[in-house]
Design a protein around this nucleic acid. Structure first.
Lengths: 120, 120
DNA sequence: GTCCTTGTTCAAAATTCATTGAACAATTGA
DNA sequence: TCAATTGTTCAATGAATTTTGAACAAGGAC
């Protein structure tokens, strides 16, 4: 884990709320929620949402708030939801957020692009 | 109810998250959570947080997102949490938020001022 | 009616946040 | 080594939010 992440017990809800109070970041959460059953996503797979540079920015926000974990894999970055940590700290909270995040139009757009990318 | 409020079934979590992703508004929620067992608070009682004008702004944000109800009482405005509506729509969510909101330093400052105001 | 209290409106200023593009690093694979 | 892929950094722009003050309503007390 080479990037700085807050410890589980240092995750603060005000920071989490601020991190999630943004459409783009909610859409990222929605994609992760649908795809991270196994191993999360790599930043590039979220390309439909916004530019590469901007993704770096938003993923960092989520990481600093303790919402996601980012693990380098070669030149890629694997992004996963910190489900266990969030559930332990704020029971039920993440599920509520996910339920609304996966309804966002942006998520569907990106998931379609992800699907096309996998087929290509 | 002379001010516009969203119906219970129109409360959208992205809006709620955006409304709560702000220190001042979280502090308002914290005060309400401690004081609204009976009948909520009046804007003036939140005076320790920020200016009158700014309170109007933040309370409106919370109202528009569906987090609070604002009811005119003469020249005052009684502000209450929309507990039932939020619990019905996002079970457990509000309790989680409140638990962290009442720990905010700003809340204690304001509650002390409220206490002093009541004694005076 | 005349104050006083409470809160709103409006426009302006200040601040913060989000987005972009160019240049750069690091890894992978040929 | 060379090129392609993936993502970062930095500075700058643009956009949205927050904050402020002056002037204004609306109601209650006298």
């Amino acid at each position: 884990m080479s990037l700085p992440h807050p410890d589980a017990d240092q995750i603060a809800l005000p920071n989490v709320l601020a991190a999630l109070g943004d459409e783009t970041r909610l859409a990222i959460i929605g994609c992760l929620a649908r795809c991270d059953a196994m191993n999360g996503l790599v930043c590039g797979q979220l390309g439909g949402l916004t530019s590469k540079t901007n993704l770096t920015y938003h993923v960092a926000k989520l990481r600093e708030a303790g919402v996601v974990n980012v693990r380098p894999e070669g030149t890629k970055r694997r992004v996963t939801l910190r489900r266990d940590d969030l559930d332990a700290r704020f029971p039920g909270f993440l599920d509520t957020v996910i339920a609304s995040a996966i309804d966002l139009p942006l998520v569907d757009i990106t998931l379609r692009q992800l699907h096309e990318a996998v087929q290509a």
